[in-house]
Structure formats: structure tokens, C-alpha cells
Design a protein around this nucleic acid. Structure first.
Lengths: 343, 343
DNA sequence: TCGGTGGCCGAAAACGTTTTCAGGAACGTA
DNA sequence: TACGTTCCTGAAAACGTTTTCGGCCACCGA
């Protein structure tokens, strides 16, 4: 069976076919399609027309074989289910645009030997670059210096300063939160946060304390309430806090989950939010923040933007302009109804 | 600069190098490494040793060029941020194992022209197969019958019965939920659910009604309460329900979000859960279900398993055993503390 | 008329594999 | 010794591009 253009229908169309149809050699056909200058405009037009007539699409394997570039990058994440990887991944996937570059997805499930495995697979596929996104914002081991492709670390920075890492701004986020509360006229601000084993918990607290210090304010409740990243802890801590400092007028929660617990208890105690006590969360986890009663003001770490920038930095590195060190991506405040000016 | 094995250090090692080191031709080297039978055991050993000595890894482009198989599949999702795509994606990514097959990730953001774009890119890269995961459990347009590679639709079934689609069992899930409530001795069961524009909402309701009918029970509250997939609707509907049928002893919520709203109001009204009223959710969205007060019994749709099976079906299709029609993946009940036997 | 100069084009090599096919070695048999 | 078999090996083609380099042609100035 023959198609109308004289090519066997089931065979995939190659550059030879295009060249033949255009009445030129494969060499010129190639040059014509790749915008090489050494081909007459009229011939180029003929080739282009022939190509789209046959709906030619070049075999990327042959191309890669020659050019030594695959046009792919690897996205090596430690936890797909984690709510932090996804936005970063989206941002990165988005920035690459799929025209020139496609992304290989690999989930190591937080397992370092599975990570090695995936890494090998990606290198075997000759990816042009690698983005490694971590599960927690704490430092992680570098993949090493002798990889044949550039690497960008996102969220979890590499422990090797020679690598390029992009991280969220937890200190700045803490500062942002408290700054907002202060602008709302609050003076007796408490901070309930999660697992002290997380560097991010301390960073957020530090940002908060720094900003308080600038106003000569003390932390309400006497100290930072470290605990767990859960609603239950938010509830428990709030009850203790109300006992100890009943005059608190704002609570900065270290995560939206904790904030939900905080709101829950305040509601139970018939304490008006934000009238009596303002509440601010962290992460802008939509499902929790938007559905809260009242909807939760919170800090958004701009993870998607982090992903996009990671992609840009990686592209730059692939072009021969590598970076190094740790770059911090600023967060932003998302105001909803759980905070408002006093009075 | 020369490495110890006599190969220039910065050049990538090819099969020629391996062959030379083993003292054979490239042909036999290839055969030895690919487990072809026509090579003596001793020679094979020599080649294998040489290969790992040089840490040889074959150039996949050259391989693909010859074999016409890329060893890659495309994962075309409509919404990465959606909570339903992710588990499916994890299951699929997991099932492919990354040894033989790597996955290209594409997010169309629910935009059909972006989808076409990604599709072209994936076909250009000569993927061996395609998994299309939808954003909503409703029917979606087929990608067409004349694609050069097999396709499996996950979550959102294709509108072409010739395609193979894998979907969740919403009817069965609704039945599962009500069955559990009945076993707990409940008789006055209400159903509050989401947007009636979703087929899934109707399916879940139907499963519930079917099971009730088997026991000759009526739905408490008089009808299915359709509304929105939000906590706020859960709260509002529950208040109305309590007004209308104060003797209700169980509520089946169409989603965990709604269930959270239900629990919230019951708590407010000092109604004991599960003592007075049992509550069951849908989706097993961990962050919501586990943190609920009390932790929420719910229906899990086994999305990750759906993803794994999608991968298996795709592999089968790639081996030449395509399927068609709609395959339904059963869900399962996850019991926590919001339900318990009466009395 | 002739050499020189650009502008276009095509032949061929290269990329790194897999696979086919022919032939060599070793061996047993007549 | 001659011959058929069985095993193993290697030369070479093929996959579909890109890129180099030589050559053809037309044109220009002398």
C-alpha cells in the first residue's frame, strides 16, 4: 500500500524521503531544516515544504548520537507524595517547556540506594542535566563533583558548597509573619511550631525573634513552642499557651497544619479570630488554609518559582555557565481573614 | 592524560574499547554483553570483565536507533497539583522500575492545546507507550486511534471504547461506605456530597443507595445532599441536616473535606462521634483524615495501585497484547475512630 | 578568453550500537 | 587423508542524522 506522497505508509519518514521529494541531497535537506546559512532561500523553502508535506520529524536518537546532547534532563525527587516536591517539580517542568527539553521523572522514595540506582539510569540515558529535589529543607549529601552533567539542588541544599543549591527562605518567612502581626498592632505574639529536629523550624523561629527584637518585644508564652508538625500538637500547645498567657493577641504557627489546630481550640474557647487573637500559618497549603475558619493568613514559600529558577540555573549551567553556593528564594505573605488590624 | 586502562580519560568509553581490551571484535563484545547464546562462556567472561573494568555503559541512542525502541514511556497528566494524579503517577513510576524503562513527565495543566503540544513532543522522542492521567474521574476525549504507540487512560476514561481505560470504583466505594455503617448497626444514614456536576458524586450516591435498598432502608435527610467539595458545604449541610433529621445516626460524606466540615459542626453541637453519629469520609486524603477529630474512617480508592496496573497494562500492550474497554479498580475501607458499632 | 572568487550543493565520514552472514577451527567419521 | 558438522568469531551493513570538505557553476574583472 502506498500513500499519496509515494512513500510506503507504515515506514517512518526519514530525511532521505524529504530530500528525495525536494530534489536535493540529505546533506542540504539537513542544512535547510536546521537553518544553516549555506543554502539558497528557494531550496530551503522547497525542503521545508517537502518536510511538512511528509510530516517529517527527525529521529532524535540519530541527532543525539551525533550532537552528544539528549535534550533531556532528570528530575530526581525523594518524595513524590510530599507536598513540597510537587510545586517545585511543576515549576521546573513548566520552565523547560517541552519544546527543546523533556524531563525524566524519578522518585527515590527517600531511599539513598534507590537514588543511586536512578542516578545511574539517568546518566545512562545521557541526560544533559539534573535537578535534585529533597524532601526536607535540611542539608543533604552531594551527588559528588565528578558527574558528567551539571546538577542543581532544590529545597534540600547540598552539603558541598561547590554545588549550586536553591532553598526557601525560612528565616525571611518567619520575619514576614511576625512583621505582619506587628503591623496589625499585635504586641503579645506567641510562636507554636513543629519538630525541633528540622532546621526549618529553628530558622522560622529565628526570623520571628529577630523581628520581635527590633521592636523590643518578647515572645508571648515565654519561649518558642516546639513540638510536632500536626494539628493535634497545635491544639495541645494552644491550650497550654492560653493557660500560661491568656492575654496573647497573636499566634504564629509554624505550619498550616498546626495553625488549624490552633484555630480549632480558639474556636472551642469562643475566642474571636482575628478580633481577639490573630493567627498566621506557614506553607500556604491551600486545602488547609482556604477551608479554615476563618480562612488562614499564611506565608507562601514560592516553591513553584523555586522550581522555575532551578530550571533556569540548570539551563545556564548546561550552556556552560555553572553556579555554586546557596541561593535563597524569598517567600511572600498571603493575607486572608485570620489576621486583621486590632480594634 | 591517560587513565590506567589505556583509554583517554575524558572520552566516553565505547564498545570498541571494551572489545579491544577483551581481545575480541565489537560484534562478539555486543553479543557477549547481551547474553546472546553464540559466544563461548570463557570469552563472554572476558568481555564482561573488560566492560566493568572500563565501567562501560552502552550508548542508548545508538541502541534505540537500531532497535527502534526507546525504553521510555510518557506520562501525560492534566494536573500535577491535583491530589489524584500524584498517587497514580507514583504507582506508575514505581511499576516501571527505571531499569528498563524511564518515564517522561508532562503536565498539560488541563489545557488541551498544551496537551497536543506535549503529545507531539513525546512522539518525537519516540516513547514506547503513553499513560494519560486525567484530573477528574469523568470521561475525556480520546487521543485518537492512529497513534504509533499504545496508550492507557487512567482515572479519566477515554470516550472511545476501543481504548483501554482504568478507573476508580466510585459505585463500589459508596457501597463499601454504607455497608460499613450498616454493620455498625446504623439505620438512619445520611449522605452529604459534592458538586452534582461530577459523575463520581452520582456514582458514590448510587452505590450508597443500592446498599441501603438491600436493607430496605431509606436515606436519612430525605435525599442526597449535593453541594460542593468543600468543608464549608460540609458544615452548612450538616446544620441543615440536623435541623431536618435530628435523629440521624450516621453520615456518609462524599469526600474527606466535606467530612471535616461535618465533624466540625457535630463537635460544635456537642454531638458525640462515633457514639451518637458515625461519620465516614471518602478519598483517604491523609492530611485531612488522620488529623481529624476523631480520626476519620474513609474509603481509599487505591489510586497508587491504579497507577501500577496502568503501567502493567501498558507494558502488556507494548509487548503486543493491547487491551480495550474500561477496567475498574476496587477501593478499600480504611477504618479509624469516627465509626464504631452502636451501643 | 581566462583566472579568480563566492555561493550552493552533494559525497562521504562519523556517531555507537545490533545483526547478518560467511568463514575458520576443531573434531569426529569414513 | 578427505570430508561433513558443530561452534565460535569477525567483517560489514544498517539505523538516521550532522558536518566537513571538495567541486561545480556563474559571475566578475582583466
Amino acid at each position: 500500500m502506498e500513500a499519496t506522497n509515494g512513500v510506503a505508509a507504515n515506514r517512518t519518514v526519514t530525511l532521505r524521503d524529504v530530500a528525495r521529494l525536494a530534489g536535493v541531497s540529505v546533506a542540504t535537506a539537513s542544512k535547510a531544516l536546521n537553518g544553516q546559512p549555506q543554502v539558497r532561500a528557494e531550496t530551503r523553502a522547497r525542503v521545508v515544504k517537502a518536510a511538512e508535506q511528509l510530516s517529517f520529524s527527525p529521529n532524535t536518537f540519530a541527532q543525539s548520537l551525533i550532537t552528544q546532547r539528549s535534550g533531556t534532563v532528570g528530575l530526581l525527587t525523594s518524595d513524590l507524595e510530599g507536598r513540597f516536591s510537587i510545586p517545585i517539580l511543576m515549576g521546573a517542568e513548566d520552565a523547560f517547556g517541552s519544546d527543546q527539553t523533556s524531563v525524566f521523572l524519578c522518585d527515590a522514595r527517600g531511599d539513598s540506594i534507590r537514588e543511586k540506582h536512578h542516578l545511574r539510569a539517568l546518566l545512562t540515558r545521557r541526560v544533559d542535566g539534573l535537578i535534585v529535589v529533597g524532601a526536607r529543607p535540611d542539608t543533604r549529601p552531594s551527588l559528588g563533583r565528578d558527574l558528567p552533567v551539571p546538577v542543581v539542588y532544590a529545597y534540600a541544599p547540598s552539603d558541598d558548597p561547590a554545588d549550586l543549591s536553591l532553598v526557601t527562605d525560612n528565616v525571611g518567612g518567619g520575619r514576614l509573619a511576625v512583621d505582619h502581626l506587628i503591623r496589625c498592632g499585635r504586641r503579645r505574639i506567641a510562636h507554636i511550631t513543629g519538630d525541633p529536629g528540622y532546621g526549618a523550624a529553628h530558622d522560622r523561629a529565628r526570623g520571628a525573634l529577630d523581628r520581635l527584637a527590633e521592636e523590643n518585644l518578647e515572645l508571648a508564652g515565654g519561649e518558642v513552642w516546639f513540638g510536632m508538625w500536626s494539628e493535634a500538637w497545635g491544639r495541645g500547645a494552644t491550650r497550654m499557651l492560653l493557660e500560661r498567657s491568656p492575654d496573647v493577641d497573636a499566634i504564629f504557627a509554624g505550619s498550616d497544619e498546626i495553625a488549624r489546630g490552633v484555630l480549632d481550640v480558639l474556636h472551642e474557647e469562643r475566642i474571636d479570630v482575628p478580633g481577639q487573637v490573630a493567627v498566621i500559618g506557614f506553607d500556604n497549603w491551600n486545602i488547609l488554609a482556604v477551608n479554615a475558619r476563618p480562612p488562614l493568613t499564611t506565608v507562601d514559600l514560592n516553591l513553584e518559582q523555586l522550581g522555575r529558577i532551578a530550571a533556569q540555573r540548570l539551563s545556564a549551567a548546561m550552556e556552560g555557565n555553572p553556579g555554586s553556593g546557596v541561593e535563597t528564594i524569598a517567600g511572600r505573605l498571603v493575607t486572608r481573614e485570620s489576621t486583621a488590624p486590632l480594634g
